[in-house]
Design a protein around this nucleic acid. Structure first.
Lengths: 214, 214
DNA sequence: ATTAGTTATAGTCACTTTGACTAGAACTAA
DNA sequence: TTAGTTCTAGTCAAAGTGACTATAACTAAT
């Protein structure tokens, strides 16, 4: 499951979107589903997730993490399927490059319905995890480019948490995190005072399965 | 992976222990390993975890949650193995009933070394998750019986976080959580003022894979 | 019966964090 | 030059936290 920021159709403010692929065979032929594919013998779980991501959407994520292993008995009507689901965050520049076609399209993550299999529940759970991680850790920056303004960070938080935040208080909190670095640059071109640009210097935590990989 | 509270050999204060099983065949024959087994076609992931737990140790956990899916290429020297690991908390009364034998024995979770496969790394990760969950959510109570004193809760925190906590401040925090209910009972038999007994009224969150199960 | 020892429990105090709010700074567009 | 907008720095009260003190309530020893 891939999360990316895109401007809302109406307000133009950033919202959370995910790409889905259309099922071209049974079961659930014609319905939209999460991209995915089989695990081969020669690749780790994370490598398989990366590869499937690239093959179906052409995306290379800046953040990739295991979400959950789903293995209920009746997930697919035809056979027993165990899905080890990963979720990714991609930066806007990346997301813009994603292949879009008749069978691959972006949707707003909070307005999905009628997906194949149990994919609606999976998206729900991923959104819940995203909100949790956001409230605690430093993950919002993987949805932005290398340089960003504090207002952009706030918009990410507002999009994910679905509520407005006080600009002054939010700024105070972000500036207290040591991983955010001030740059000398300013974003020009707005119709107002130009905001300072910042940079994220932290590294995402390694997945436990990859810790001992050389 | 099963966590339970047991008194330390030296200090007698509660510490975290897990049961391990001895490998009776190659690879890693003779080494200690986490209990586990195959997933059959007719059971969900959680059911399989429960069953394997019961079959190897005789335990029925009061708390069971998916930990992580491990699928690195070289986890086993003989074949490719993907392990979907669950972790459980059991109450002391339960833990005392566990089968112990030549090939099943309890170990201190923080003093393990030389386990089979990548099981050392898995235990490390589980302990990290346990500490995290403990600091935030209400999970410590699943390691205790139905009734407990606030000092017992504090000892659980101290065992998992591996540091001492101020009794007065800890008490203030716990009493602020609405899920902890005062009972009229007191624990008798100590050589000092008898502490009040409390009860935990919260329910553990459902695993996402089981949400739609009837 | 009294006292010492131990833990339970309540409370104080300084310090930090948080949410609501005010105000000035710095830019663009009219 | 002025109005409009956002950026940015503050203030202030409320709530939470860590260190600490003091009293309550029991048991065991004298």
């Amino acid at each position: 499951m891939i999360f990316a920021l895109r401007p809302s159709e109406r307000s133009g403010r950033p919202t959370i979107w995910i790409p889905l692929v259309r099922r071209i065979r049974e079961p659930f032929k014609g319905l939209w589903a999460l991209p995915g594919g089989p695990l081969t013998h020669a690749e780790s779980l994370q490598d398989a997730a990366s590869r499937n991501l690239r093959e179906t959407t052409g995306l290379a994520p800046s953040y990739l993490e295991q979400l959950y292993a789903f293995g209920g008995l009746h997930r697919s009507p035809t056979q027993r399927v165990v899905s080890i689901v990963y979720w990714a965050l991609v930066q806007p520049t990346e997301a813009a490059l994603a292949d879009e076609s008749e069978n691959v399209r972006w949707f707003r993550a909070d307005r999905l319905d009628g997906l194949a299999f149990d994919h609606n529940a999976i998206v729900e759970y991923a959104l819940w995890r995203l909100r949790n991680k956001m409230a605690y850790g430093s993950i919002a920056y993987h949805l932005l480019g290398e340089y960003f303004t504090l207002a952009q960070v706030r918009e990410v938080y507002e999009a994910v948490l679905d509520r407005e935040l006080d600009p002054a208080n939010f700024r105070r909190q972000i500036k207290a995190t040591p991983e955010i670095e001030e740059t000398g640059e300013y974003l020009q071109g707005g119709k107002h005072r130009p905001p300072r640009l910042y940079r994220f210097t932290g590294r995402p935590g390694l997945d436990p399965d990859n810790r001992s990989t050389p």
